[in-house]
Design a protein around this nucleic acid. Structure first.
Lengths: 188, 188
DNA sequence: AACATATATGTATTTAGTATATAGTGTCAA
DNA sequence: TTGACACTATATACTAAATACATATATGTT
């Protein structure tokens, strides 16, 4: 029930259709937020059933093309969104990372594999940090809260890159020292 | 398919049953990892069907009590775990936070509500940081990778608390200045 | 003509997460 | 002594989220 309110929140800014919502989220929250069409269209349908949004089908452009369903938030929608916004979040932050899930178990793995995976992460997050910094300007127009959130994104990225590089150093030093003979388990 | 390998990973250390696995995860990863019995028992069953773990039913203790199903990793299981461990993660980090989801939209809300929610977060993360710092010692026995991961947890927590406090200051200052008259939407 | 790309929506399936049911044992207090 | 509560243990039902796949039209390119 989080996507539901994120969509409702975006509709506070302007009327949108599914495709544009995905584009918007990708562009603005793409770092920590990746969303799928399936999730969007299902949520839009349900929001409409509940009367929190209204839908009008419109042509894509003068030249035709697939028609789009433009959604606009209703008064009921705004009221429901306000209630949610002021309510205390019921859950803690959720962080799930397929890299970290592997990393924490690497005492059972080959340090060389660990180094390779770390390097992949460093490269990926360095590119991400560049993009985030480029975008900070654009986010300012949305107001204080959006700007602060984007700053959090940058700070997180910097912190994480720092940790990755430190971890890399430790793993490499430990590997060179040959501190622990790593034994491959049987492959079959 | 992440929980599956996390369970397999824990079984590398020692034989475990469902209840103990949850306890283990809660104790050691409880900050960023919360798992549910439903997920554990389903995954254990499936792992057994696939021959990656073996199960023996044993009594709980001498005094009786509900019997437990003790799971142990097989050779096939170890091989499959090794393959997974060395494979490049297919997805990016996933961060989902019901507080941040609200925060980013607070240009449509009452700053006083924002302050209240921020204060709740600060209190919660300050307690969490204390617990994490207490635990760092215990984690060291598990090796370099577990220790590094726990250090990441602490660094993340410190960074996030810093951001929360800065954000609080900005919101408060902005509110006092009355920079923007906030208008409540119709409640009904 | 064939192919890629962009716009647009939708369904099906799998995985993750939440809630709740069940059941035995031990403990402490009213 | 019984009854509430906590602890150990497993299991199922249900909801939400995430992924994969399917469809359709228009534009530009080779």
């Amino acid at each position: 029930m989080g996507i539901r309110y994120a969509i409702l929140g975006l509709l506070n800014y302007e009327d949108l259709h599914g495709y544009r919502i995905k584009e918007h989220i990708e562009r603005n929250f793409g770092h920590m937020w990746s969303i799928n069409y399936g999730q969007i269209y299902q949520n839009l349908k349900r929001l409409e059933d509940e009367g929190l949004v209204k839908m009008v089908e419109v042509a894509q452009s003068e030249n035709g093309g697939p028609r789009k369903k433009l959604y606009c938030i209703t008064e009921e929608g705004r009221a429901e969104f306000s209630r949610w916004l002021a309510s205390s979040p019921d859950r803690q932050m959720l962080l799930r990372d397929p890299f970290l899930t592997r990393f924490v178990f690497f005492d059972f793995g080959d340090p060389e594999d660990a180094l390779r995976l770390i390097d992949e992460q460093i490269e990926s997050y360095e590119r991400q940090l560049d993009r985030r910094r480029e975008n900070t300007g654009r986010w300012k127009q949305y107001g204080t809260y959006v700007r602060l959130t984007s700053e959090l994104g940058v700070e997180f990225n910097e912190m994480y890159l720092g940790w990755l590089k430190r971890a890399r150093g430790e793993v490499e030093r430990r590997m060179r020292a040959g501190a622990k003979a790593w034994e491959a388990p049987p492959k079959r």
